[in-house]
Simulated assay, not measured.
Amino acid sequence: MTPDLVEYPDREMLTISLANRIASQLAQHLRTNDQAVLCVPGGSTPAPVFRTLSGADLDWSRVTVLLNDERWVDRDSPRSNSALLARNLFQGPAAAAQYLDLYTGAPTPADAAPALAEQVSAVLPITVLLLGMGNDMHTASLFPRAEGLAEALSHDAPAVMAMTGGDEAEPRVTLTLPALKSALWTHVMITGTDKREALERAADFDPQAAPIRAFLDDATVHWAE
């Protein structure tokens, strides 16, 4: 078990507390900096956090938002993480945020990755990073023993790489270890017994087998059943 694990009595308390902490850290950064960067996961688990965070009293026009990773699908696809952000985060005050879209419409992720790496590098470091984790201990689109994972987890990796993996094995782009590790504050959000057990297993694994392990030493993990 990671020592930086915060347990909540229910998911509603997790949602409220985590959204408030993210908003507070962004506000703290903006008091002494012109810009802040928020990097978030896709998927349904963090959607309630996004909805709560969207109403935060921040100067959102000075916040750049980007995803940890994105599936190579059009915005109108139900698989699009960008579409999920549009529905849940970019509402109310947060609609004023700047969005760095990882999906460019290029034929393949590999075609787009070099230019995306330059764009992401230009906004680094990340101010607040929120990560999720799958039952297989992947995070972002860094999947256990995936082709290219060793390069993506190297300290000299480009900021963005094309990757495949997961049950769908669909093409994706992902931020890599050096980009994600640039964050000033890192949070991992997980729910349910299965993911709690996976997290505990990951603590004893190599990042090649459990990519989330590469980020746990710097992270606060937020968990509710």
Rank of each mutant, 00 (worst) to 15 (best):
1 M>L: 06
4 D>P: 02
6 V>D: 11
6 V>M: 07
8 Y>P: 07
8 Y>C: 14
10 D>L: 13
13 M>H: 15
15 T>Q: 04
15 T>P: 02
16 I>F: 07
18 L>R: 04
19 A>P: 02
20 N>A: 15
22 I>P: 04
23 A>P: 03
25 Q>H: 15
27 A>P: 05
31 R>S: 09
32 T>F: 09
33 N>S: 15
34 D>L: 00
34 D>E: 14
35 Q>W: 07
36 A>Q: 03
36 A>T: 07
37 V>D: 07
37 V>R: 11
38 L>W: 02
38 L>M: 02
40 V>T: 04
40 V>P: 04
40 V>A: 05
43 G>P: 12
44 S>Q: 15
46 P>F: 12
49 V>Y: 12
51 R>G: 00
51 R>P: 01
53 L>Y: 12
53 L>K: 00
54 S>W: 08
54 S>V: 07
54 S>D: 01
55 G>H: 15
57 D>W: 03
59 D>H: 06
63 V>W: 07
63 V>P: 04
64 T>V: 10
68 N>A: 14
68 N>Y: 01
70 E>R: 06
71 R>N: 02
73 V>N: 07
75 R>D: 13
77 S>K: 11
77 S>M: 10
77 S>C: 12
82 S>D: 12
82 S>A: 15
83 A>Y: 04
84 L>F: 06
87 R>E: 15
90 F>E: 12
93 P>I: 08
94 A>C: 02
95 A>V: 04
96 A>I: 00
97 A>V: 00
98 Q>T: 13
100 L>N: 05
105 G>Q: 10
107 P>V: 01
109 P>W: 03
110 A>G: 12
113 A>K: 11
114 P>M: 06
116 L>G: 09
120 V>I: 13
122 A>V: 10
125 P>F: 09
127 T>R: 06
127 T>P: 02
128 V>I: 11
128 V>L: 09
129 L>V: 01
132 G>L: 12
133 M>F: 12
134 G>K: 13
135 N>T: 14
136 D>C: 10
139 T>L: 08
139 T>P: 08
140 A>H: 10
143 F>P: 01
144 P>Y: 13
144 P>H: 14
144 P>S: 11
145 R>T: 14
147 E>C: 01
148 G>E: 06
149 L>N: 05
149 L>P: 01
151 E>W: 01
151 E>Q: 11
153 L>D: 01
155 H>V: 08
156 D>R: 05
156 D>Q: 10
158 P>W: 01
161 M>T: 04
162 A>F: 03
162 A>H: 05
163 M>D: 03
165 G>W: 04
168 E>D: 14
168 E>M: 10
168 E>V: 05
168 E>Q: 03
169 A>R: 06
170 E>D: 10
170 E>V: 09
171 P>H: 02
172 R>M: 06
173 V>Y: 05
174 T>Q: 05
178 P>F: 04
181 K>R: 15
182 S>N: 05
183 A>D: 11
187 H>G: 09
190 I>C: 13
191 T>F: 10
191 T>G: 10
192 G>V: 05
193 T>S: 12
194 D>F: 00
196 R>F: 02
197 E>W: 04
197 E>N: 09
198 A>E: 09
198 A>I: 04
199 L>T: 07
199 L>S: 02
209 A>H: 14
210 A>G: 12
211 P>S: 10
211 P>V: 13
214 A>I: 08
215 F>M: 14
216 L>N: 03
217 D>M: 07
218 D>G: 02
219 A>V: 02
221 V>N: 08
223 W>T: 01
223 W>Y: 03
225 E>T: 11
